[in-house]
Design a protein around this nucleic acid. Structure first.
Length: 859
RNA sequence: GCCGAAGUGGCGGAAUGGCAGACGCGGCGGUCUCAAACACCGCUGAGGGCAACCUCGUAUGGGUUCGAAUCCCAUCUUCGGCACCA
């Protein structure tokens, strides 16, 4: 058929056909899905394979912004894809409803934090529904509700009983807004609060901790977890396991002290023990006062006091000058009985290792700097091959460690390889009770007390007679009082709420006071995915049977900013729940995916204060939710994120328009295209039909693979290619053929997870046109690839000479190697390039996918 | 400083040992329209040539290979994490 054959009257008036109007379609289908309860998961259905898909629940700050869409809509596509594979998918949603912003708003606007939070949640529910996402709202969890937070309290009491929760007084990190902070929640060299950015101070306070360091070794084991390497590395570094030895030094007797006090040090380099020329205690070390000579008391006290205040002032830089003060007491090196002076210096940290070090200035940069400043001896004790015999005692340089170093200046250990020598030294010390192999971690116990109102009250009572008394289980929950009196200050209003504070001691019945600190809100997010499975369970935190059948979570999606906070706490909490007998699993999330972050137009993190937040409502109003969803998936790889730029959204919208046109108006002509309605030159009807069928199935194969690995951008690109091909054939003899129809059907099914509304609309029209009863496209089964159609009769083979592309041959698909080689050498173009040179070698790569002819290069 | 990720057209990106730049944006040209919008069609890495084509080209320098954006070594840059951890 040619252009002349088509009567001009057939030319379509574009306005005759109904156009794609997402604003009309989308709310209608959302309502329909809701009414049908399409996404309510029957948790007790064991006939199908379960798939627990979890996405990080949002903090109800008030608005869903484009960043939320970037996490949630591809997650929804994953859920729909799995449903189409017959799995019983559970995709719950909830709100991380406790936290400081609610209190700030309350103080500023004089509204109750609960009212503020619940109002925001209402708005966010509405916005989340606009995505057309398949959340199971029946399972919703709101952590600020007493039926949730009472279980935080109950867990705490279980942990207390098991010795996993404890109270201790020490110097803690304290944020003027958030109250005390866990170690992970202090960020940067300037030590600011993770949430509000305020500078963190040190305070001596009695606080509640969870003993997560019990799990340090276990947390390093990621076997069986499909997590991004970057997160595993970050957690591993955070946990910071160091292997070495503990060595006991004793103090030498002096005029004011009998000596014999034990000073334990941790070192990763026991091989350098002979190079220890002094010793350093942290300012917080308990023996500082005892070991200070009377004539040095004043100076040492001043230094310790100044160190305590220093934290917020100038701990800014790692290259800050080292300072310290001598105590006036010596320690005795257990390996050679040498006397070395003891210093106090703030470059040694109280909370790490034993809070004391042996200083080896020749082999440690910090010790070297300190020794240099105070004129202390420097003795080199390990050396490489060349330097070994020339090493003097007082070599003044710091020498980095290298693999084949050997010990020098080390008495009987001289000549041993460093690693071996270190082990030998520890063994020798162990024999005399002065040392042992030892492992130290950087990880600290989790400080969970916060001096805030809007959180879970810690269920403890302080009685003058009975001390710390846990609230009895039957008195849970300890409710937050609803009326809050801030008096314009940021101070915890619970501190002056007599009705809350004053309580009878559960033991003696006498007057007692309640704990007014509340829990870190990261407690809330440490078990919410278990609660999703048991939302109505009143008598227990979790439905154990459902938890065992549905968890661990199959796939977790969310940002990587919580690498060493939420994602680490969740693992720790799971292990604690296991150890008090609540669950029977070691890890919460089998597979983790971190999507990238969408930045503002200015390349900065989106935030209200920067004024660079992109509001999806406007985009949805203009293009529809499907376009916004697709555009976010099409922008680039999901794990990459990047600055927001709306310039490409029109292209995605045009694609949906084309799909609409192909589906509702296959026979229409494009008046703007003179070739419209004709087949391309050299393509007959049979070839066109075959081409369509092959393209559809090849696309299906690629799209299926892309969904499986979350490559949504290339998935959409492939569907665009297919749509472009169909568009080329629109109005021609093959439009509306069986092959065309199959290609449209497959396109809709393939796109259904990503763009659920337009595909549902077009699907329902197909069913109606075929006189069939309506059923949702989202209950369809994912189509199967017909491999036989993908096999082509001929294929194109690139031919290279010396690795440079010189020709492309079209050959029968099943051509044998010899014939392919002959065909390549026979090519006119190749013969010209060869110019008579004989091939040295002919390489047929990838089963004949490519031919490379190797010849001697001329010149 | 240490740890991790990444550098490809004007832009977002594709290709992870075999045809670099799929798909999309932007740009240029065109069709449709009274016109505009919408839509559709074609071209679009750089340089050379009337052309068929040729040369160069994936941060930089080297290497491995018949063949490298892809693997190895070194360097530079950007982004993320850590912050004196003995």
């Amino acid at each position: 058929m040619t252009a002349q054959d088509i009567p001009q009257t057939d030319r379509t008036d574009r306005n005759r056909v109904e156009r794609y109007d997402p604003t009309g379609i989308e709310p209608r289908w959302q309502q329909r899905w809701d009414e049908l309860g399409l996404y309510r998961t029957d948790l007790h259905d064991t006939s199908r394979r379960k798939f627990y898909l979890l996405t990080m629940y949002p903090y109800p700050s008030g608005d869903i912004h484009i960043g939320h869409w970037y996490i949630k809509t591809p997650t929804d596509a994953i859920a729909r894809f799995h449903r189409m594979h017959g799995e019983n998918v559970f995709l719950p949603i909830g709100f991380d409803a406790f936290g400081l912003p609610a209190e700030n708003a309350a103080i500023k606007k004089n509204i109750n934090p609960r009212d503020w939070t619940m109002g925001n949640i209402d708005n966010m529910r509405r916005q989340l529904r606009m995505m057309g996402a398949t959340f199971d709202w029946d399972a919703e969890v709101v952590t600020a509700n007493p039926d949730y937070y009472r279980w935080n309290q109950w867990f705490f009491l279980q942990f207390l009983k098991a010795g996993l929760a404890y109270r201790a007084t020490s110097a803690v990190d304290w944020c003027p807004n958030d109250g005390t902070l866990a170690r992970e929640q202090v960020e940067g060299a300037d030590r600011h609060c993770w949430r509000c950015g305020a500078k963190v101070e040190k305070r001596d306070l009695a606080q509640w901790y969870l003993r997560v360091t019990n799990y340090a070794d276990e947390l390093l084991d990621f076997s069986g977890l499909d997590w991004p390497e970057a997160i595993k590395t970050q957690q591993t570094n955070w946990i910071g396991r160091s292997e070495g030895g503990e060595i006991v030094f004793e103090t030498a007797p002096s005029g004011f002290h009998p000596g014999g006090a034990e000073l334990r040090v941790f070192t990763t380099r026991p091989d350098t023990l002979f190079g220890a020329t002094f010793m350093v205690l942290a300012p917080e070390h308990p023996l500082v006062a005892e070991l200070t000579a009377p004539d040095r008391f004043k100076e040492v006290n001043a230094y310790v006091a100044q160190a305590a205040n220093r934290t917020e002032i100038d701990r800014l830089s790692t290259d800050r000058e080292k300072t310290g003060v001598a105590l006036g007491t010596d320690a005795i090196n257990p390996i050679n009985d040498e006397r070395i002076p003891i210093f106090v210096a703030d470059y040694v940290l109280g909370g790490y290792g034993t809070g004391a070090i042996m200083a080896v200035p020749a082999h440690d940069e910090r010790d070297y700097a300190f020794a240099n400043k105070y004129g202390l001896p420097i003795r080199r004790v390990v050396a490489g091959e060349a330097a070994r015999d020339e090493v003097g005692e007082l070599d003044s340089a710091y020498i980095a460690h290298s693999a084949n170093d050997r010990l020098v200046n080390s008495g009987p250990y001289r000549g041993l390889p460093a690693d071996e020598g270190g082990k030998a030294i520890i063994t020798a010390l162990e024999a005399i009770g002065k040392g042992k192999p030892s492992v130290t971690f950087r990880l600290r116990d989790w400080l969970i007390s916060r001096q805030r109102y809007w959180g879970t009250p810690i269920p403890v009572i302080y009685c003058e007679r009975d001390g710390i008394v846990p609230v009895p289980d039957e008195d849970l929950p300890v409710r937050l009082p609803d009326t809050v009196d801030y008096r314009g200050s940021g101070e915890n209003p619970l501190n002056r709420d007599e009705a809350f504070l004053s309580v009878e001691c559960p033991v003696c019945g006498g007057p007692a006071r309640r704990e007014t600190d509340t829990m870190d809100t990261f407690i809330d997010s440490s078990w919410y995915w278990y609660r999703y499975l048991s939302p109505e369970k009143a008598g227990a935190p979790i439905d154990r049977e459902l938890v065992e059948s549905w968890t661990p979570v199959d796939q977790y999606t969310g940002g990587s900013e919580h690498a060493v906070m939420h994602l680490l706490y969740a693992r720790e909490f799971t292990k604690m729940m296991r150890d008090v007998g609540l669950i029977d699993q070691d890890e919460p999330f089998k597979r983790l995916f971190n999507q990238g972050q969408i930045l503002g137009l200015d390349g900065e993190r989106m935030s209200k204060s920067r004024g660079n937040v992109v509001d999806p409502d406007d985009l949805v109003a203009r293009y529809g939710a499907d376009t916004v969803r697709l555009f976010l998936m099409f922008m680039g790889p999901w794990d990459q994120g990047g600055p927001w730029s709306p310039t490409g959204i029109g292209g995605v919208h045009r694609f949906l328009n084309r799909l609409w046109t192909i589906a509702v108006d296959p026979h229409g002509r494009e008046p703007g295209d003179p070739e419209s309605g004709t087949l391309p030159a050299g393509v007959d009807e049979a070839a066109a039909r075959l081409q369509i069928r092959q393209a559809a199935h090849r696309t299906l194969k690629g799209v299926t693979a892309d969904y499986e690995v979350f490559h949504f951008n290339t998935m959409i690109a492939k569907l665009m290619e297919l749509a472009n091909l169909l568009m080329r054939f629109r109005g021609s003899v093959v439009a509306g053929s069986a092959e065309w129809d199959e290609a449209v059907r497959l396109s809709l099914l393939m796109l259904a997870p990503a763009a659920p509304h337009i595909t549902e609309e077009l699907w329902s029209r197909r069913l109606a046109a075929g006189g069939k009863e309506w059923s949702s496209i989202h209950t369809e089964t994912w189509p199967a690839v017909d491999e036989s159609t993908i096999v082509e009769a001929t294929r194109e083979v690139p031919v290279q000479v010396n690795g440079k592309l010189r020709d492309r041959l079209v050959v029968p698909a099943d051509i044998d190697p010899a014939a392919l080689e002959a065909a390549a050498l026979a090519s006119e173009r190749i013969r010209t390039v060869l110019a008579g040179r004989a091939p040295l070698k002919v390489i047929r790569a990838g089963g004949g996918r490519l031919v490379n002819i190797v010849v001697r290069d001329e010149g």
